[in-house]
């Protein structure tokens, strides 16, 4: 369980987020959510800081992190393609979209490209079933996505080696 040295640079930021909440067990979920939202994952250092703050062993914080889908222990990509695989989307062939994403980006649901640009995830019902199949990329919702549309959407985010690494960050 080594802590990445880079994480120490953010130590004070983590602390600031964590100390918004009272040091009680029931603050745990909310603190973890804030950290996850800010950094797209739960840095190890943050986990040990949280553990100390709320008075719960690190092991239990890890248990929470692995139990709930909202959390990730590794950084997610800059662009997260979330494909809805709720029932309405499933029967309108959301799986084909996943296959295609895998073909274009080379990653399966739950994975992130090695350059840290893209992640693919599945979600259960985004509540826009009328527009099935639905996909969300960093908060932007795409409805009635056909396999034919997908290439264009990926390109919007600089996908398929269309020079996204020149843009810097």
């Amino acid at each position: 369980m080594q802590i990445d040295v880079n994480e120490y640079k953010h130590e004070n930021e983590y602390k600031e987020l964590i100390e918004n909440y009272a040091g009680k067990p029931e603050s745990l979920l909310a603190i973890m959510q804030d950290i996850q939202k800010q950094y797209n994952y739960l840095p190890r250092l943050a986990i040990s800081l949280i553990s100390r703050h709320v008075g719960i062993p690190v092991s239990r914080v890890y248990a929470m992190a692995s139990f709930y889908k909202a959390f990730s222990l590794t950084p997610k990509g800059r662009f997260v393609f979330r494909v809805c695989d709720g029932t309405a989307c499933h029967i309108k062939n959301s799986e084909t979209l996943l296959d295609q994403l895998q073909k274009s980006l080379g990653i399966k649901p739950g994975e992130t490209t090695t350059d840290g640009m893209y992640s693919v995830e599945t979600v259960n019902c985004l509540g826009a079933c009328a527009l099935a199949p639905v996909m969300v990329v960093n908060g932007k919702v795409y409805g009635k996505v056909s396999p034919g549309d997908l290439e264009g959407i990926i390109k919007e985010y600089g996908g398929q080696n269309h020079g996204y690494d020149n843009q810097g960050s």
Partner: peptide, 25 residues
Amino acid sequence: LVRGGGAFVCGEETALMASIEGRTG
């Protein structure tokens, strides 16, 4: 307001309460 952690089983009432208490659901 409490935000769920994203687990279907947390819709079950006793799991949901565990989740509010800051435990796994």
